[in-house]
Design a protein around this nucleic acid. Structure first.
Length: 572
DNA sequence: CTGGGGATGGGGCCC
DNA sequence: TGGGCCCCATCCCCA
């Protein structure tokens, strides 16, 4: 007994879900375009994707290898098995580009298809050896850097180089990768920065030089997580997607919707951590008992950040995956960053979901991209609309989210986006919100009592003309002066929040993505920053280096000492 | 119920 | 650019 149309129907459904962003759990960034998709689907169609989605919910593709238009076709192909030709370019060009992309992405069927097409059309332009573009090698470097801790061989790079991908043995890049991931398993290197290898160098591929926003290497050391990697990546396992690989998403289960929790029997193995993942995880890790945490507190804690995120995403939307909707920048106010607002473009996708779709095809109503609207905040999200998914925009498939304008080409969108950034650069002075910072002095004395504390009084010849703070070197002064600017040059690509320092912004991005590279060996808890881990380790060691001079109370953290001191000093 | 303490998250900023 | 440390905010637990 076999349903003849089963596969087809299934694909159809999936494609419709993609159209609505329903259950989409990964965003692929291509230049300024964002595509949403399902990890499982991507992983099932390409080993390369498989390795990427393993640790990341945001994937940045090398723009030298694929552009938004091409990627749209690629994605369509993945979800439909059909090649929709692009009207923008000559067919041959298009197939050439597609072939390059397919090779890069290790979509071998698609590549073969393109080759066939090209051959048929006389294809001498067959790009059998796409030249190695700069960014590519950049990302490769990056990946090597990222995975320095892994012994994986010299070819330890993620985005396979073109020469790799075009090899007949497609799995080569993967194999390298495999070893990477295997290294994650139980590799608890951590601490001294030892552990963890790569994950996505791809985020850094960033495309054409000088693309400040996208070329982020957010993962830096990626989580030693993914105990799952081993089998998830076994070369032949594509079709037998193990539950583990399905569950991997590690980096950000926070952003996965509950579907991710529907993988009960999943033995996450050492996959630990996933600090953000739900309670079920604890059980998975410790099938026969409570989690190792000494305090239930920690168990509870584990949920914290997902919780926050969820709360930010509107409670009605129960854990709607962050990536599912495009997240729009917070309005203002400091803590606003903690409450991302999820664009509800796909309302129907989640609750009202399916249904609506039967009729048809990919013409669902509201599309992936996110309602274009933007509602006037400074989001920096730019979505490339997936064809057919958003009739409202007609031919203008490239839509700028902040203002909702559509553009017929990525170039035009890019140009437009530029103007946004500039605007944002010079606006943003709005009342009051952007304040804070100078409240540090008072606390200073409080924290003084103990701790390694501060300020030697070396020469600080570089003085800020605005606030007269002084610094040892001009670079620091420059950096400081930025804090006086009315503008913040570094926008978060996901929520649009602006930052004065790139580093702060990338760190912030990590929190979106749930990248928590630093894991505690004792309890598996994970952190976004080394410092946090250090701090946390005192919980286990019992060390309490901070002592209150007034009452002798000891604290593991300086900040707690400070708040304690407030208690002493506050009138009440 | 409340306040204090423990613990964690995120942003700013200096080095 | 990344690390480290500061800050505030917040959550949870417990007395």
């Amino acid at each position: 007994m076999e349903l003849p149309n089963h596969a087809k129907q299934l694909l159809l459904q999936l494609n419709q879900q993609r159209a609505k962003g329903f259950l989409c759990d990964v965003i692929i960034v291509v230049e300024n375009a964002l595509f949403r998709a399902h990890k499982n689907i991507l992983a099932a169609s390409s080993i390369y994707f498989k390795s990427l989605v393993l640790h990341d919910n945001l994937i940045n593709l090398d723009t030298e290898m694929v552009n938004p238009s091409v990627f749209r076709q690629v994605l369509d192909f993945i979800y439909t098995g059909k090649l929709m030709s692009s009207s923008e370019q000559s067919n041959e060009q298009n197939y050439t580009a597609l072939l390059t992309a397919a090779s890069y992405l290790q979509l071998h069927d698609l590549a073969a298809l393109c080759r066939k097409k090209l051959k048929r059309s006389g294809g001498k332009s067959l790009p059998s050896k796409p030249s190695t573009p700069g960014p590519q090698s950049r990302s490769r470097l990056n990946n090597q850097r990222l995975s320095t801790s892994t012994p994986a061989g010299p070819k330890n790079h993620y985005p396979p180089t073109p020469s790799d991908v075009d090899q007949p043995q497609p799995d080569e890049g993967l194999r390298d990768k495999l070893s990477d991931d295997e290294m994650f398993v139980g590799s608890s290197g951590r601490n001294g920065n030892g552990g963890n290898g790569s994950s996505n160098g791809n985020l850094s591929s960033g495309g054409s030089a000088g693309e400040p926003d996208l070329g982020l290497d957010l993962s830096k050391k990626s989580p030693p997580s993914a105990g799952t990697a081993t089998d998830a990546l076994s070369p032949h396992s594509i079709s037998q997607e193990s539950p583990q690989s399905a569950s991997v998403s590690t980096t950000n289960s926070a952003s996965l919707d509950d579907s991710s929790t529907t993988l009960p029997g999943v033995d996450t193995g050492s996959e630990e951590l996933n600090s953000s993942s739900k309670a079920s995880e604890d059980n998975q890790n410790q099938p026969d008992g409570p989690p190792p945490q000494k305090k239930s507190r920690q168990g509870a804690r584990k949920n914290e950040w997902p919780k926050r995120e969820a709360s930010g995403l509107k409670s009605e939307d129960h854990e709607r995956p962050l990536v599912n909707g495009v997240i729009v920048g917070p309005k203002d106010g400091r803590s606003s960053d903690q409450s991302f607002q999820c664009k509800d473009e796909d309302e129907g996708g989640e609750n009202g979901q399916d249904h609506t779709d039967e009729s048809g095809q990919s013409d669902g109503e509201s599309a992936g991209g996110g309602g274009g609207t933007g509602g006037g905040n400074h989001s920096a999200n730019y979505v490339y609309r997936q064809e057919g998914f958003e009739p409202a925009f007609g031919d203008n498939l490239y839509v700028c989210i902040p203002c909702g304008k559509g553009f017929p080409s990525s170039e035009q969108l890019n140009a437009h986006v530029e103007t946004h950034n500039e605007d944002e650069l010079y606006i943003k002075e709005e009342g009051g919100t952007f304040v804070k910072e100078e409240d540090e002095e008072e606390a200073e004395d409080l924290s003084a009592p103990v701790g390694p504390s501060s300020f030697g009084s070396e020469a600080r010849p570089f003085k800020c003309t605005v606030c007269s703070k002084s610094y040892k070197d001009p670079a620091t002064l420059r950096q400081h002066e930025k804090s006086h600017w009315l503008t913040r040059p570094f926008p978060c690509n996901i929520c649009g929040k602006m930052f004065t320092q790139r580093g702060t912004m990338t760190r912030h991005m990590r929190s979106h993505l749930g990248l928590k590279p630093f894991a505690c060996e004792e309890c598996g808890m994970r952190f976004t920053r080394q410092y946090r881990l250090t701090e946390h380790m005192r919980v286990h060691s019992g060390e309490k280096p901070y002592e209150c001079q007034l009452c002798g109370g000891k604290f593991t953290q300086q900040r707690n000492l400070i708040s304690h001191l407030r208690m002493h000093t506050s009138p009440s």
